[in-house]
């Protein structure tokens, strides 16, 4: 039980990751898949940031009153990953809009069916 408490953040990360993964592979709606992908993405962010945390530490902004800081390196990686994430989301959104214009649907199986007929 103590092991569960000391790894609680990581376990939640796994749960969130799997929920995102489930949304991506189970549904057929493209918008929902993109939302599922961003849940997956946030779970990865949470994993990195949780690893960088030091109990008793503070935010990595230098000040004479503090000596222990959490690890700033994961913060840098994830900060840029978030902005790149919105860029890919926007690109996915644009593709969904174009798919909807071409096929009249954003449900994956209907798109496949139309492709099969052609």
């Amino acid at each position: 039980m103590t092991e569960v408490m000391s790894h609680f953040n990581y376990l939640v990360v796994v749960v969130l990751m799997m929920i995102g993964f489930y949304i991506v592979i189970s549904g057929s709606n493209l918008v929902k898949k993109v939302v599922g992908l961003s849940i997956f993405q946030v779970s990865v962010f949470l994993l990195y940031i949780s690893m960088g945390k030091i109990i008793g530490g503070t935010a990595p902004i230098l000040d004479d009153r503090f000596t222990v800081y959490s690890n700033p390196l994961p913060h840098v990686l994830i900060l840029t990953a978030i902005v790149v994430g919105v860029a890919t989301t926007a690109l996915a959104g644009a593709l969904i809009v174009r798919i909807n214009e071409a096929y009249g649907s954003i449900e994956e199986d209907e798109i496949y069916r139309q492709d099969g007929d052609a």
């Binding site: 918008v31 993109v34 939302v35 961003s38 946030v42 962010f45 940031i49 949780s50 960088g52 945390k53 030091i54 530490g57 503070t58 935010a59 990595p60 902004i61 800081y69 959490s70 994961p74 913060h75 994830i78 900060l79 978030i82 902005v83 994430g85 919105v86 989301t89 926007a90 959104g93 969904i96 809009v97």
Partner: peptide
């Protein structure tokens, strides 16, 4: 809570703000 204030700032502005607006645009 995890001391990543810069990341929190970005996530609040980007994830909760701009991404939502873009997805609403898609809808």
């Amino acid at each position: 809570l995890l001391d990543a204030v810069d990341v929190a700032f970005t996530e609040a502005a980007v994830g909760a703000g701009i991404s939502t607006i873009l997805m609403l645009g898609v809808l």
